[in-house]
Design a protein around this nucleic acid. Structure first.
Length: 259
DNA sequence: ATGGTAGACCTTCTA
């Protein structure tokens, strides 16, 4: 089973790019982030024609996440538990049916910039909530993949120019510590486990020729429960997609599990 | 030190 995660930066602005990638790769499961549209505006038809079942948790203008799967999706949860007042659509979870069911979450973790504001506090609080929820999911002892745009640069090796990010919410000690705390729960970073070569980035800013200069960062991650990590076959970062016509600023990350 | 780009929406916010 190949599970993809991709921050598409508007599914409607990106439709032809995303459709082209789907037709080429046909992943079993795809978790998308930053849809920037409400549920009714998600362009379902092109994906249904390719055989996908779709669950969307959308939002106007900002955020919005989805899970697409070739097999039916069950036990769908929209929104991260722990704050009833949180209106941002950043989390959707479902169980991908099959001989070995796999629970998958599509995560769009808050950016948190600028630091020192309520946005950064929201990021850290959101990470605490994710930690609490991940602890509950791990107690189920199932194959589980928490994938998405984490908006965290875990280590200096995950940035081409780490010094450029010292004042940024993505590279703050608190953000990195919260990401490590997720891993200490018993989650495995699939990329590090399967490959781990430095210089593997998933995001290049649109500005200042970041792509042309390879000024990238690794902020899209796949965290696996032990039952999923046991079945890890490999990980691929589809770097070339950043050079396509009308690209997202993120590229797909694909995890293959032997299920 | 600054501004550089992209998307949604309508003048500014988010990233």
């Amino acid at each position: 089973m190949r599970i993809a995660t991709w921050n598409v930066n508007s599914i409607n602005a990106r439709l032809e790019t995303v459709r082209r990638w789907f037709e080429q790769e046909l992943p079993d499961v795809a978790c998308l982030q930053e849809l920037k549209c409400v549920d009714e505006k998600f362009p379902a038809e092109p994906f249904e024609r390719l055989g996908y079942n779709i669950k969307v948790f959308g939002q106007k203008t900002y955020n919005g996440v989805a899970i697409l799967s070739k097999t039916p999706l069950e036990d769908v949860r929209r929104g991260l538990p722990g704050d009833e007042a949180d209106e941002q659509a950043r989390y959707i979870e479902a169980v991908v049916s099959g001989p070995t069911p796999v629970r998958v979450a599509s995560i769009y973790l808050p950016n948190g910039n600028p630091i020192g504001t309520e946005k950064f506090a929201y990021k850290l609080a959101w990470m605490d909530r994710l930690n609490a929820h991940a602890r509950e999911l791990l107690a189920l002892e199932e194959p589980l993949a928490l994938v998405g745009d984490y908006n965290v640069i875990p280590e200096p090796r995950d940035a081409e120019h780490p010094a450029n990010w010292t004042g940024d919410a993505l590279f703050q000690p608190e953000s990195r510590a919260a990401f490590r705390a997720l891993k200490w729960l018993g989650l495995t970073d699939a990329y590090l486990e399967a490959d781990g070569a430095p210089g593997a980035y998933t995001f290049w800013d649109y500005q200042a020729g970041a792509w042309q200069r390879n000024n990238g960062i690794r902020i899209d991650h796949a965290l696996l429960s032990p039952q999923a990590a046991d079945r890890l076959v490999g990980v691929a970062i589809h770097r070339d997609v950043r050079g396509w016509e009308k690209p997202s600023d993120h590229v797909p990350l694909v995890v293959e599990l032997d299920v």
